[in-house]
Design a protein around this nucleic acid. Structure first.
Length: 318
DNA sequence: AATTTTTCCAACCGCGGATAA
DNA sequence: GTTATCCGCGGTTGGAAAAAT
């Protein structure tokens, strides 16, 4: 599937090839490596090797497995396609909803989001977001013009722009100046800046199961969450604890199960908070969730600093 | 039926953090 | 302490397939 023209590009590894100095052993020779779509034979070589020797050591893997691929390519192929626990097929409405909500909480941190969706890869979710959900979100934004446009976060600002402009112009020659291309230039990127890591001693193991039944609180058809809105995102990880919160316009969201009964007037506070109920106590033995909850309450008390809340919310899932 | 346009998604690139030497 | 490499991540690309004309 992949274009032949790619092979003319110099890979970063090739650029890097140099004499070994300090540090690790030198990079393997990258000359004559295959690129583009994987053949069934390559797939089978990779699967066989990993089944026999396990994952990891991607750099040396291709040579040992008899593959003419760079390690990075092998890793990507395995992670996104060949892993036995990959779930194939369409994203379900529940997953769709969960992605929207996790994205509102985490921004474009696809690997984290994927970690909440067993069997789904970050690449798959990223693609799904870009092709389906961002449009949905855009539509909802049109119907809610008061939503603020979130600040764009550009992770890198390097040579991309020149490269991009060249390629885009090529792409745009192919396409007429239609809705899609207009969208491409005007579509807001909806994601949050990277969170600051906090030293909370609890973690969410990747690929643990997420109870979608409890997670769904409103339909994504009601529109995505934007910017400041932080979804109630319960999870069930190793601890089995459930914890979540909601920040946003209560008039928009308050009716969606988030009220804990203390803000029924929907006016006194901009924030709703749902604490782990007595029926479902957080089972974290160190009381970490309680600590986080208390920390969150502290932040609520200094309500004007919403940035802190965002940061806090994100740090929870790091 | 043929052509053009749009959508989808696998695979690539480059960056940054972690780590080995 | 410094440097080079590994690894994982997010952004982007462009060919194939589907839809529209």
């Amino acid at each position: 599937m992949y274009r032949a023209g790619l092979s003319s590009r110099l890979t970063r590894c090739q650029e890097r090839e140099r004499e070994p100095g300090m540090g690790r052993a030198p990079c393997c020779a990258k000359v004559g490596l295959h690129r583009g779509p994987w053949t069934p034979r390559e797939d089978s070589l990779l699967v066989d090797y990993i089944q026999a020797h396990g994952e990891g050591h991607w750099r040396s893997l291709p040579k040992k497995a008899g593959l003419l691929r760079c390690g990075k390519s092998c890793r990507l192929r395995w992670m996104n396609y060949l892993r036995p626990d990959i779930k194939r097929g369409n994203i379900t409405p529940d997953e769709d909803d969960l992605i929207v909500r996790l994205h509102s909480l985490l921004g474009n941190r696809w690997s984290l989001i994927a970690g909440r969706l067993p069997g789904r890869t970050d690449n798959e979710i990223k693609n799904y977001w870009n092709t389906h959900l961002s449009k949905k979100l855009l539509t909802s934004q049109d119907t809610h013009p008061t939503h603020r446009s979130p600040a764009n976060k550009k992770r890198k600002t390097t040579t991309k722009s020149t490269k991009e402009s060249t390629k885009k112009s090529k792409h745009n020659n192919k396409k007429s100046p239609n809705k899609a291309s207009v969208e491409a230039t005007e579509r807001p990127k909806v994601h949050l800046p990277k969170a600051i890591r906090v030293t909370a001693s609890f973690s969410l193991p990747r690929n643990d199961s997420f109870d979608c039944n409890t997670a769904i609180s409103w339909s994504s058809s009601q529109g995505g969450l934007l910017d400041r809105e932080v979804a109630h995102v319960p999870w069930s990880g190793e601890t089995g604890g459930v914890f979540g919160f909601f920040i946003g316009d209560p008039q928009d969201r308050g009716r969606h199960e988030f009220s804990n009964g203390q803000n029924d007037d929907n006016t006194t506070s901009a924030h709703h908070l749902e604490r782990p109920s007595e029926d479902e106590p957080a089972k974290d033995q160190n009381g970490t969730l309680d600590k986080l909850y208390e920390e969150y309450l502290q932040l609520l008390r200094t309500e004007d600093d919403l940035v802190q809340l965002d940061t806090f919310a994100e740090s929870l899932l790091m």
